[in-house]
Nucleic acid binder design. Structure first.
Lengths: 215, 215, 215, 215
DNA sequence: CATGAATGAGCTTTCATTCAT
DNA sequence: AATGAATGAAAGCTCATTCAT
């Protein structure tokens, strides 16, 4: 049946964006972030975004090719934050100081998750439908897991027993962190921030360096 | 991609289903499970399901009110499995025997996840758009977390130090397990089953009972 | 800017069309022919077609992928008629009998043009935008021109002087015929059928065989 | 592809255009000519024109009310050339000298067509959607046909047999010329200029004055 | 029970045109 | 004069759902 050559879509010709345009673009990005949170990625309509941004429907297409495109812009920003967070994991040490470092880091992760959760979740949804996001997701996960695995291995070299396979444990720990934040911050679980951070930091610490010496 | 939750209209008032009808219904359910896996829940069209099931488009509406309805049927079945799994957690003990029980249990969870992953993921997606699934999800998570928290508390009563808040740790552990299986079995991570089970069981064990005594 | 992979369009899966469906399909084809005539190809909206056909908007997409697809269906049919017409040119002879054959043939061409003009014109418009139609157009023109050129060459072999280059003259004659019919039957020029046919047949005859012997 | 004739709104009330403005206007006209050639009239977007002209999008509306308006400006210029060409037909005589005059004239027509083809084709497309162009087209065709018919009639008065109805033959000849040039120069047919001109001039000559006396 | 044709709401995207700067 | 951001009216197309057979 229908197979007549379809003209290539007019690829939006790299419009140069002025100051006013940039402001509108940011408004749209923030609105999208917002709507992704409220309705989820697949249920989000371009119209929801423009309504929230207070622009016309058409304005959206001045700055983005489509829904995926906005998500991509947001996701890249988020990925950068994530990379930075992952890098901060490098210096964690054994001992009480290390535990405190870890605790602080988990706190920062939680903050970041809270800010970026709409994007993360949209992203996860989109992974199923678009391989580009899948790829980006793998990269970020890999970055995290690599840092953690490295830390575990350092512990092992230092003579600490480790109950687990570093690469696998690393992904498990990230999974835990990410998913817990999801249940807590997105789905709205009844947890207290301090307790959460203590609990997660403790589990991480033991997985990284073994039993903690407590008073 | 119109997938906003649309209220089911005339829920087929208690149609009595004969033997042939039951077979068709099952074909549709299995097809749906399959398609949810391949395309994700929101991207799944009724047509994809009927095509895969080899029935007519119309047949679908003889057995289900809509897409959510199929998912619900599948989800209830999955939830039952999950409840059963959660119950099996009850008896876990301290010591090497307990570790082995835990290990076996994690193995069973992995098996169950593999079988039910299409439903679980569809479900997670749907939670965002339909409060029914949100509720069901909370219940299952609660069931798991409750059992685990209980186990941790038993350990505490038995004089084991516990570095963490039981209810929070419980959710964290379930999060880890669920998410890891997702990255591994759905997204396709490069992990080896034995290593995964060992690693996860070890982390769980330590979170439940503290440092394991190893040879 | 926007370049995230766009999912391949769901190619309409070779639906099997029943009797009722076939009737609808024909209604849509005839309606399209009609609207192409009234508004021209580019100005034609799918909605115009469905309105004229008395079907819903959606029905259109059950049978055609898009506007081009309908035109293609019509164009293929038209091309077949044209090929048949072209073949009939083969036997034309020198002399009064040949002139009468030619006259009759021009008459049949005019009839065919009248029936197919909406398609022809849509087609010509579409050639500019879609290479598939361009190709088809070349083929039909080539078929006609080939037959005519052959006839001219036969005349030359028979010792008739020919003032012209056969291949070029052939295209010129077809151009004349097609375009005249356009001005006359589509644009609505004030010509009388008999006169037109006589005139055109006469010009053709002379181009094919040289001066006609008249009483 | 919204191209339904939209009535021009505020036709820029007689703006006085300075020198710089005039240059911009000309740039836009030439760009439009160019784009009409490349993409066809209906597929042409105002944006294509301004991009090619190197002006801002808004500048277009400083000089033209809309797409039709540009075409009209170009078409009027083209029509003037055509009128001039038509007038040159007047003096054609019988005999070899006349044939040579005709030959030269066809050559000039071809030159003119080549230059004006984008406009001619845009125009033909627009005729279907806008009666202004239809009218202009009729006038030009009428002008040509009138001159030719007149020439044929002069031949008849001079005692030449003519196989055809002058008015009808006139339109047929113009049709041939126009359409051939289209297939050749726009669509890109494999013809050689000399041969084309000879062939067409020959057919015209015979239709005008009957069989040519050849050496 | 099963079928598949028909419907139409809903979403995406494009572009001519206006307007503030 | 020129610019380019914004607007919104059309289209285009998809798909859940209904219904006649």
């Amino acid at each position: 049946m229908g197979a007549v050559a379809r003209k290539a879509k007019t690829v939006q010709q790299e419009r140069v964006i002025g100051e006013q345009g940039e402001r509108t673009r940011v408004k749209l990005l923030e609105a999208a972030r917002q709507v992704f949170l409220e309705r989820g990625y697949s249920a989000t309509r371009v119209d929801d975004v423009t309504k929230k941004a207070g622009t016309s429907h058409g304005a959206f297409y001045l700055y983005f090719a489509n829904k995926q495109d906005v998500l991509e812009a947001l996701a890249v920003e988020t990925a950068d934050h994530m990379y930075a967070l992952a890098d901060e994991l490098e210096g964690i040490e054994v001992g009480e100081a290390g535990y405190q470092q870890l605790r602080a880091w988990v706190g920062r992760f939680v903050d970041a998750y809270e800010r970026h959760s709409p994007v993360v979740n949209a992203w996860i949804t989109a992974e199923m439908e678009d391989s580009r996001f899948d790829q980006l997701g793998r990269e970020v996960l890999g970055q995290f897991a690599g840092r953690i695995a490295h830390t575990i291995e350092r512990g092992v070299d230092a003579g600490l027993r480790h109950p687990v396979h570093p690469g696998t444990a690393a992904v498990a720990l990230v999974s835990m962190l990410e998913r817990f934040c999801y249940f807590w911050l997105v789905r709205g679980g009844p947890f207290k921030r301090d307790v959460v951070i203590d609990t997660i930091a403790a589990i991480w610490y033991e997985a990284l360096f073994g039993q903690r010496q407590q008073a």
